[in-house]
């Protein structure tokens, strides 16, 4: 398990002032260039880029039930220490649950010719601060034969306004069809409703059989 958390916890009792200051501070810290050994991956560079992008938590690997519990707990504590509003906390938590459970339920096996580490269910997840709230990004492989129907569902969701989304949600909720996990395709509609924003997604075609699906969701309490 590769779980990384950037620990810059504000002291207890910090005000919202500190919070917004932290959000606005985009100034780059100038650092001396560091000499590296001949490592396969420049871990400092990765860390620094994550720090600059205000990444709170990121993960790459197999998404398990225990992992989701840990992530939810870490983010909840983090939002408490940041004195986020109850409204923002609830929205972020809800969207996070849906994003993580999407990864958990719908992930396709990593194609063997692409997998380098023997993990056959691997995904990437990242949550970072932005000016108004939080940004959640996920990425996972998807088989090309599932891509088109999934893409058209996302396009449909993005074409609807809030009233139409509410109607679609109720239509899917009351329809008989449901996946064996119970969701039945409500997750993305719910994310779009709760955030009040279009779903920002992309499919990177890897070969005839596989694409890499990425999703970026911004959550703030403006809606």
């Amino acid at each position: 398990m590769q779980l990384s958390s950037i620990n810059d916890k504000p002291a207890l009792g910090t005000s919202k002032k500190t919070n917004s200051k932290k959000r606005m501070n985009n100034s780059e810290i100038k650092l001396k260039p560091v000499e590296y050994g001949n490592t396969a991956m420049n871990i400092y560079d990765l860390y620094h880029r994550m720090e600059s992008n205000k990444v709170v938590l990121s993960f790459k690997g197999d998404v398990t039930s225990e992992l989701m519990s840990s992530i939810l707990q870490i983010i909840e504590q983090r939002m408490d220490s940041m004195n986020e509003t109850p409204k923002l906390k609830k929205k972020v938590y809800n969207v996070l649950v849906e994003c993580l459970q999407n990864l958990y339920h719908h992930i396709d096996q990593v194609p063997s010719e692409i997998s380098k580490n023997g993990l056959d269910r691997s995904a990437i997840f990242m949550i970072s601060l932005n000016n108004k709230g939080y940004s959640i990004t996920t990425g996972n492989y998807i088989q090309s034969n599932r891509k088109e129907s999934f893409k058209s569902r996302l396009e449909r969701i993005n074409s609807l306004d809030s009233t139409e989304l509410k109607e679609l949600y109720k239509e899917v909720l009351t329809s008989d069809g449901r996946s064996d996990k119970g969701g039945g395709g409500l997750g993305m509609i719910d994310i779009a409703r709760k955030t009040g924003k279009k779903l920002n997604y992309d499919f990177a075609q890897l070969n005839d059989e596989y694409s890499f699906f990425s999703l970026n969701i911004n959550v703030d309490d403006s809606k």
Partner: peptide
């Protein structure tokens, strides 16, 4: 909180 899987 409830997830969409609980909503059905």
């Amino acid at each position: 909180y409830f997830n969409t899987s609980s909503s059905k």
